[in-house]
Design a protein around this nucleic acid. Structure first.
Lengths: 210, 210
DNA sequence: TGTCTCGTGTTACCTATGCAACACCGAGGG
DNA sequence: CCCTCGGTGTTGCATAGGTAACACGAGACA
């Protein structure tokens, strides 16, 4: 964050324009048809400069998701524990923000995750979500007492959660009905997080509020 | 034009972003309230870089108009003479393009030319229109035979034309009714250009078409 | 009155980017 | 078969731009 703020203005500009350009192109023509030259031209960035920042177009798209995800996670700090030592904010505003982001770039995510999408992107998104959740678990473990089944692979709940998240998004994007980000956040959270918290060792799911 | 194309990509970017930034700020907050720092920050351009390209915010806005005007003039080349050796294309498509541009940046021009506008901008716009018209007259003079009243100051018709143009724009922007750019182009041309051409020495106004 | 803040211009130094050229590769196409 | 063509990825050099600092002037305000 503040780490991001103090990078050279030119670098921030370059990242921004390349990201906007590739998103626009994905929406218009799909991902596979795009060349690095297309992206660079639209972004008004020299192609050589592209390679100084990203390995290829896959790297660029992957980092777009990662950066927004990081941004969202950074806002997750206000998660606190309630009187019973359980996470509050249910469904967390952060998930509403996340689904709002997905809605905003619906055509992008549909292009990347849908039937003609790039499977590497779904895989990458899953991977990254897992690492994020593992990090968050460590923070929470510091904050709360909980007893974990020692035979359970520790990354399993995160993998399950990531899978539910992507599945929810795909279903949403292909759904006919215009459900709101808040609805999706609620339903995702209700389904995924209670099982997730129980899997992590919380004896009973916290009550729903908000 | 091709001159513009071969300038350094960074310079084109910088100009573009500074121009977009100042226009957005003018529309939002008016011209006088803006500082160079505001423009630079919004454009993601360092303030020092601003001064490498423009003297101050006045210079920037003036050049925006001048560049669009130059662009429009460059498209005026297809003006030809008809069988009677008079300019064709009436009302010229170029004036429709011009009023379309004004419509697009209506809030900008309203802010700059309206009652609370900056009088220097109107003056600058008038000046620049005059120089453009004088240049065009020279080209036409090469192409056509015409007899000019030798006692008439040669820049007067251009000054009159510029004044009519600005007056037409101001009236349009403050008008309640949504006249189209084509209508405005027609009415401007009908009023201003016939007198203009006669003043330049054409014995009779060309017939209306298009 | 002094000084504090804010906007303006300007400068010296460093760096990110543009540009042009290059080799490489895979897909067509004669 | 060779051959072009388009896209990839890389490199050396020139330069536009970022950064931080500076002096200056014009209010605001005690």
């Amino acid at each position: 964050m503040s780490h991001e703020e103090q990078t050279d203005l030119r670098i921030r500009r370059t990242h921004k324009f390349l990201q906007e350009a590739v998103i626009a192109h994905i929406i218009e023509r799909g991902f596979e048809a795009i060349t690095v030259g297309d992206i660079a031209e639209r972004a008004m960035i020299n192609r050589a400069t592209f390679y100084r920042h990203y390995q290829d177009k896959y790297d660029l798209v992957a980092r777009i998701f990662e950066e927004t995800a990081n941004h969202l996670v950074a806002q997750m700090q206000p998660i606190t524990k309630d009187a019973d030592n359980r996470p509050t904010q249910i469904p967390p505003a952060i998930w509403i923000a996340f689904f709002t982001h997905v809605a905003e770039y619906a055509r992008l995510y549909r292009a990347m995750l849908g039937k003609n999408g790039s499977s590497w992107f779904a895989a990458r998104m899953r991977e990254y979500t897992i690492t994020i959740m593992l990090d968050l678990e460590k923070q929470w473990a510091r904050q709360m007492d909980r007893t974990i089944d020692p035979t359970m692979p520790p990354e399993l709940p995160s993998a399950q959660l990531a899978q539910v998240l992507i599945g929810t998004i795909v279903w949403w994007l292909e759904s006919e009905d215009p459900y709101t980000p808040r609805q999706m956040a609620t339903w995702f959270h209700r389904f995924a997080f209670y099982g997730y918290l129980v899997a992590l060792g919380y004896p009973s799911p916290p009550p729903e509020r908000g």
